[in-house]
Amino acid sequence: MITIDGVTKIRGRTRILHEVSFTARPGRVTGFLGPNGAGKTSTLRVLLGLDRPQAGTALIDGRRYADHDRPLTVAGALLDGSGAHRSRSARAHLRWVAASNGLPRARVEEVLDLVGLSADAGKRAGRFSLGMGRRLGLATALLGDPPVLILDEPVNGLDPAGIRWMRTFLRDSAATGRTVLLSSHLMGELAETADDVVIIDRGRVVAAGTLAEVVGEHATLEDAFLDRTASEGVSW
């Protein structure tokens, strides 16, 4: 369970997040939708303790991410890129991450197999394609077999087969009771994957609810999204 309550983040002179509040519940995929620069990544970074908010709280199972012992067993995160130093092999990267949280070494081979990277595990991360880097990032997120997954634009850089694989994986994860929070600017993708939707625009949550509630009387999620975020008019 993810609870974000009144998070405000100011960077320099810009207010990036205005009292952002929403929840993501176990057993459901929550889609966090918004145009580029709306504050999706900033919200996820606050949730993971990477950035400090000026106000508000972001909790995972009632506690801040950083207050959990062995946090990788509580939540797994996929942010930009693979997260691995270029000169390290995928396996070497996963091994140090596993060591940091006291996870068994055998788990490294399991997650490599799970994301389909076993054959390339000895390759340096700097030589990975964008899609392989995302898989390595996901493998890292899954190391601790966490009940909560936090993913920023997970299908970015994946080929069609990879996108389908990711969609199935996330649906299966929710079906086994995991809390899945994923951000995206791709509405079609989210409409296929999410149970709940939160729409953020210019740092404010403008809609939140089940997919059906958010779509409402609009024909598609895309229509609902554009209706709520295009308040300043479309310039193209």
Binding site: G81, S82, H93, V97, S100, G126, G133
Partner: peptide, 19 residues
């Protein structure tokens, strides 16, 4: 970590593993 991920750095992994 690569040209196609401007914000990607090992530090993100490090801090999620050890916040």
């Amino acid at each position: 970590t690569g040209e196609d991920s401007p914000d990607g750095r090992q530090l993100i992994t490090t801090l999620t593993a050890a916040p």
